[in-house]
Amino acid sequence: MQEPVREAVVRFDTRAEFESQFRACLAAARTRLDLFDPDFAVFPLGSSEVDASLREFFRRGGVLRLAMHSPAHIEGHYPRFLRLLRDYGHLLGCRSTPKGLRNLTDSFCIADDLHLVRRFHSAHMRGEASFALAQAVELPRHRFDAIWTESFSVLQSTTTGL
């Protein structure tokens, strides 16, 4: 049995610390993950550890939604993630923002409306992670929902592969 996540806010300012907090958020997720980043270049979506964690998350029925400005980095650098899309496309949605939202520069991951990892600006590693703090998730949740509504589908799995 997994230990309950205790309330915590952790600040970070390096890529290694960001990746560690993202993995902790992924491990804490049970039913839903919503991520926004301009291109997901710093998210370790192509690593074997994240692949294994996401596969377990999907096997439990979890749903993942990614919103981004461009899917080019994922298409060119994350073949494991593209296989996840093929295998779990019914639980994984990817959307791209319209031109009017391309000025958004923050980056965040929300798990179960309870846990949050966010970088204040996507060009920098400085940010914070909040665990078991629903109030910290409120504003990013509203932002993500608005971004998701305005965005259009990309990276869809098809019968020809991808």
Rank of each mutant, 00 (worst) to 15 (best):
R86N: 10
L116Y: 08
L116H: 03
G161C: 03
A136V: 00
F144D: 00
S107D: 07
I147F: 08
T31H: 03
T149P: 03
P140A: 10
L104P: 01
S107F: 08
I147V: 14
R11H: 14
L33S: 06
S70A: 04
G89T: 01
R102I: 01
S48Y: 03
H121C: 10
A8K: 12
L155M: 04
V154C: 10
F81M: 09
H121I: 04
S53Y: 03
D113F: 02
T158H: 15
R126S: 15
S48D: 11
M68K: 05
A28Y: 02
A16T: 12
L91P: 04
M125P: 10
V137I: 04
R86M: 07
W148Q: 09
S151P: 00
L91I: 00
W148S: 11
D51H: 10
R15G: 07
S70R: 12
V5C: 08
E3T: 15
L92A: 13
D106Q: 14
S20I: 08
F36A: 01
S130W: 09
E19I: 06
R118N: 03
R126L: 14
R141L: 11
S153F: 14
L133M: 13
R83T: 12
L101M: 12
M68I: 11
T14C: 04
Q135G: 01
F22G: 07
T14R: 05
T31G: 01
G161L: 09
K99I: 13
V117D: 08
A129L: 13
V5I: 15
D113K: 08
H115Q: 00
A67S: 06
P79H: 08
I110T: 02
V42L: 08
L45Y: 03
F58C: 02
A24Y: 02
V63H: 04
A132W: 02
M68D: 04
A52Y: 00
V9P: 05
V42Y: 01
D13S: 14
L114Q: 02
A41M: 12
P4K: 07
P79K: 09
R141A: 12
D145S: 12
A8W: 02
A27C: 04
L162Y: 11
E49P: 10
E3A: 15
L84Q: 03
A52W: 06
P38G: 06
G127R: 07
A27E: 14
P79W: 05
A146R: 13
E150C: 13
P4W: 01
L139T: 14
Y88A: 05
E128M: 13
V5R: 00
P79G: 04
Q156A: 10
G46E: 03
R141Y: 03
R102Q: 14
S70T: 13
A8P: 00
F12E: 03
R65I: 02
A67T: 06
N103D: 11
L92C: 11
A72S: 12
H73S: 01
D145R: 10
A134E: 09
E138H: 13
F40H: 09
Q2P: 04
A111I: 03
F120L: 14
C25G: 08
R126D: 15
A29K: 02
R55N: 11
H142Q: 15
E56G: 13
L33R: 02
G61D: 09
S96P: 06
L162E: 14
A146C: 11
Y78P: 05
G93C: 12
D87E: 15
G161I: 01
S47L: 02
F120C: 07
Q2E: 15
V42Q: 07
D34W: 05
D87R: 13
